[in-house]
């Protein structure tokens, strides 16, 4: 069994790569992928703690998170496509529709 510390460290690093990606990239697609990455890092933690506590609840919850991630991707990609239709770009800093 891997030690809990290594699991936590890897999931933390994955999560922070996701945060960094959301903050520094300007391509909406890659921002969406980074959000997925963060959800997966959380999933890794859930599974590790399920293993630690010896119950199956963490794994069941990770499954729910996975389904939610799929729903999020569907809506997010539809938004990206709609944005591209309207503005012909998916660079997030060129989208200033709310600016008065």
């Amino acid at each position: 069994m891997p030690s809990m510390n290594s699991v936590l460290l890897i999931s933390f690093l994955l999560f922070s790569i996701g945060v960094v990606g959301v903050l520094i990239r300007r391509n909406a697609l890659i921002i969406l992928m980074c959000a997925e990455l963060m959800l997966n890092a959380a999933n890794l933690n859930l599974i590790a703690f399920a293993r630690h506590s010896g119950t199956v609840h963490g794994q069941a919850f990770a499954l729910l998170v996975m389904g939610l991630a799929a729903a999020e991707v569907a809506v997010g990609l539809a938004l990206v496509v709609a944005l591209y239709r309207k503005k012909s770009t998916i660079q997030v800093d060129e989208l200033d529709l709310l600016k008065g």
């Binding site: 069994m1 293993r51 630690h52």
Partner: peptide, 9 residues
């Protein structure tokens, strides 16, 4: 430190 004890699982 938390360990992943196989007997717990």
């Amino acid at each position: 430190a938390l360990t992943l004890d196989p007997t717990l699982a």
